[in-house]
Amino acid sequence: MNLKIKYFGMLTEVTQCHEETFLFSKSTVLDLLDILFSKYPLLKEKEFQVAQRQILVSRNTIISDTEIALLPPFAGG
Protein backbone atom coordinates (compact mmCIF):
# COMPACT_ATOMS: atom_id res chain seq x y z
CA MET A 1 0.00 0.00 0.00
CA ASN A 2 1.30 3.47 -0.86
CA LEU A 3 1.08 5.62 2.28
CA LYS A 4 0.98 9.39 2.26
CA ILE A 5 2.48 10.65 5.52
CA LYS A 6 2.10 14.22 6.72
CA TYR A 7 4.38 15.72 9.34
CA PHE A 8 3.50 18.67 11.56
CA GLY A 9 5.38 21.24 13.63
CA MET A 10 8.84 20.36 14.84
CA LEU A 11 8.66 16.91 13.22
CA THR A 12 9.22 18.54 9.84
CA GLU A 13 12.61 19.70 11.11
CA VAL A 14 13.55 16.05 11.62
CA THR A 15 12.11 14.74 8.36
CA GLN A 16 12.99 17.86 6.33
CA CYS A 17 9.65 17.54 4.56
CA HIS A 18 5.96 18.19 5.26
CA GLU A 19 4.78 15.16 3.40
CA GLU A 20 6.09 12.01 1.75
CA THR A 21 4.75 8.82 0.24
CA PHE A 22 6.20 5.36 0.47
CA LEU A 23 5.30 1.74 0.07
CA PHE A 24 4.20 0.00 3.27
CA SER A 25 3.54 -3.71 3.42
CA LYS A 26 3.38 -4.35 7.17
CA SER A 27 0.54 -4.09 9.62
CA THR A 28 0.27 -1.62 12.50
CA VAL A 29 1.11 1.98 13.36
CA LEU A 30 3.95 0.58 15.47
CA ASP A 31 5.39 -1.21 12.41
CA LEU A 32 5.23 2.04 10.49
CA LEU A 33 6.98 3.89 13.29
CA ASP A 34 9.76 1.28 13.32
CA ILE A 35 10.41 2.09 9.68
CA LEU A 36 10.24 5.84 10.28
CA PHE A 37 12.56 5.61 13.29
CA SER A 38 15.21 3.83 11.26
CA LYS A 39 14.84 6.40 8.51
CA TYR A 40 14.82 9.34 10.98
CA PRO A 41 16.57 8.30 14.23
CA LEU A 42 15.83 11.71 15.83
CA LEU A 43 12.10 11.12 15.44
CA LYS A 44 12.33 8.60 18.27
CA GLU A 45 13.02 11.38 20.76
CA LYS A 46 9.97 13.40 19.70
CA GLU A 47 6.59 13.32 21.31
CA PHE A 48 3.74 12.91 18.79
CA GLN A 49 0.44 11.23 18.05
CA VAL A 50 -0.60 9.44 14.87
CA ALA A 51 -3.77 10.00 12.88
CA GLN A 52 -5.16 7.70 10.22
CA ARG A 53 -7.82 9.06 7.87
CA GLN A 54 -7.81 12.17 10.12
CA ILE A 55 -8.66 10.21 13.24
CA LEU A 56 -6.15 10.02 16.10
CA VAL A 57 -5.36 6.35 16.71
CA SER A 58 -3.33 4.26 19.15
CA ARG A 59 0.01 2.68 18.30
CA ASN A 60 -1.43 -0.82 17.88
CA THR A 61 -4.02 0.23 15.30
CA ILE A 62 -3.85 -1.64 12.01
CA ILE A 63 -3.13 0.64 9.10
CA SER A 64 -6.00 0.40 6.66
CA ASP A 65 -5.89 3.80 5.03
CA THR A 66 -3.29 5.54 2.91
CA GLU A 67 -3.53 8.87 4.74
CA ILE A 68 -1.38 9.14 7.86
CA ALA A 69 -0.45 12.22 9.91
CA LEU A 70 2.12 12.63 12.69
CA LEU A 71 1.20 15.38 15.11
CA PRO A 72 3.38 16.78 17.94
CA PRO A 73 2.12 18.91 20.86
CA PHE A 74 2.70 22.67 20.56
CA ALA A 75 3.68 24.76 23.56
CA GLY A 76 3.62 28.26 22.16
CA GLY A 77 1.10 30.98 22.79
Binding site: F8, G9, M10, Q49, F74, G77
Partner: peptide, 28 residues
Protein backbone atom coordinates in the same frame (compact mmCIF):
# COMPACT_ATOMS: atom_id res chain seq x y z
CA UNK B 1 -1.32 26.58 20.71
CA UNK B 2 1.22 27.66 18.13
CA UNK B 3 4.59 26.65 16.73
CA UNK B 4 6.45 28.83 14.21
CA UNK B 5 3.95 28.88 11.27
CA UNK B 6 1.43 26.32 12.58
CA UNK B 7 -1.36 26.36 15.10
CA UNK B 8 -3.81 24.05 16.87
CA UNK B 9 -7.32 24.86 18.12
CA UNK B 10 -9.79 22.68 20.03
CA UNK B 11 -12.61 22.73 22.56
CA UNK B 12 -12.03 20.32 25.44
CA UNK B 13 -14.13 19.12 28.36
CA UNK B 14 -17.30 20.21 26.58
CA UNK B 15 -20.40 18.20 27.52
CA UNK B 16 -18.31 15.23 28.61
CA UNK B 17 -16.20 15.40 25.48
CA UNK B 18 -12.47 14.60 25.23
CA UNK B 19 -9.82 16.54 27.13
CA UNK B 20 -6.29 17.55 26.13
CA UNK B 21 -4.96 14.45 27.89
CA UNK B 22 -7.02 12.30 25.51
CA UNK B 23 -4.61 13.46 22.78
CA UNK B 24 -1.40 13.90 24.74
CA UNK B 25 -1.76 11.97 28.02
CA UNK B 26 1.41 13.20 29.67
CA UNK B 27 3.52 16.35 29.34
CA UNK B 28 6.58 16.11 27.12
Amino acid sequence: AIYKFEGQVAVFNYQNGPSYRCIFPTPP
